[in-house]
Structure formats: C-alpha cells, structure tokens
Design a protein around this nucleic acid. Sequence first.
DNA 1: GCGACAG
DNA 2: ATCTTGTCGC
Length: 263
Amino acid sequence: MRASRPDLEPDPTLSRKEMETLQREIADAAVFEDRFEFDPETLSNPLEAAVSGREPPTVVGVDQSFLTNEAGEQDRALSAVVATRGGEVIERVHAVTPLESPYIPGLLSFREGRPILAALETLSVEPDLLLFDGSGRIHFRQAGIATHMGVVLDVPSVGVAKSLLCGTPRESIENLPAGACVPIEANSRVGVTDGTLLGYAVQTRQYDSPDRHINPLYVSPGHRVGPETAANAVLELASSYKLPEPVRLADAYADEAKRDLGC
DNA sequence: GCGACAG
DNA sequence: ATCTTGTCGC
C-alpha cells in the first residue's frame, strides 16, 4: 500500500522545530472519530462475520526491532507487519532500513515512521485497521506515531502504548479488573483544552490473585477511529494475552526476523 | 531554571 | 528499544 499524503511523511532530516510544526498539521488533518466501513463487531469473531454476512476486516499489527552493527551500535530498524483476518494470519512482511533519527520522546514517528512505511509498501492486502505500538492522540501535539501513520496512509489506526506519555487518568488505574476502561484526559502538557478525552487506559488481562497485578494498556485514536471504538477494538483483539493479537504477533515477528539475520 | 518524557 | 536470571503463580 502507498501513502495518500506523501507530503506529510515523517522526514528525519527536519529540525526539531519543523517536526513539531508538521505534527500540528498531522493533528489538524486527523479525524478522531469513527469513519470506516467495516463492522467493529466482526474484528476477531468469524461467527459474527458469518451471521452478518460480511467478511471480517483485515487488521494489521506493526512493531519494530533494531539491528546492531559490528561496533555494537544500533544502525538499522526492522519493521515487522502482520496482517490478520478473523483471527488468522494472512500475510507477514518486514523491511530493514538504516536508522536516520535518535529516539526523542514525542518525536517517535520520525525515528520509526519511514521504516514502517517501507514495510507497508510491500504488503499486498489492504488494511482496514492498523494497530501500532505507541501512542495516537495521547501525545503532546495529538500526533503520536499511530496518528501520523494513519493520516499519511489515510487508513483507520489505533495507538497501543504500554506506558502513558501524557494526559491524566480520570480515576485510579491501579489493579483494574479485566475489561475495564478508564478515560485519559488532556492536561496542561497537551496542546488542547484541558479535559479533552484523549483515549483510555484499557485492562485487557488481570490476575485473579490480589498479590501482583498487570498494568493497563494506553489506547488512543490514531486516525478515523473514536476513543471508544479504539478501546473496544483492543479488548476484542486481545484474546489470551495483554497485547491485542496483531501487535503481539508483529512483536514476535520483529524478533524472529531479527534472529534470522543473526542479530 | 527544573521536571517529564511512547519505543 | 535493548541488556538478561530467577521467580512467582496457574
């Protein structure tokens, strides 16, 4: 698949100031509400799809690993993409590209965006929904990597982060029961009116015993998906593990492909 | 000036 | 992200 807005692609050579300006453009172009054709009830349930007479949507997970050179420094990114439909893997692709930018909190898409787009260009199926490891709207300028990629490709996307970049949970997120969702609202660190709903802390799994507990995921709209749909999609797609299946599979594939290259 | 900060 | 053993719980 190709970019529908190549002018908004993350350019690693931009100055920090220019990157932030581009992110505000991305946020302006982003749609943080449902605007897609597929039936969200059929995301991972083939039976629902059969009953509704529609084929399940193609959900694609994206993750990265990094390769080291002889000197022991990270010099390349490996982007892994796993496409699923009705709970089954239908295609896997990956791409290795040179690293062009360091990791800077808030500017992740300028480090990982190009590699991701390179991998997605080799994907033959058309994604109905893209899942990224990282934030979407939960971002200083409402333009996390899921939002940036979703806007550039104009495909519905969701951000799935393991820790909270910014924003404030409306209530305690300690030891939530499986299935629970707690709103994450904008605070003074986010460039939008305080209290704006940015996403949800989503508890996909939880231990039974009260001894130790699992932390929630932080789910936010990337593009063309509202916060409720994003949270429900992640709950729907997380069958047996904390991470939604497409992301978990992409995570494993990123490591597998890395090993096959000898680290 | 100080603190905070996805992967 | 990555470097890594043991350890707790089902």
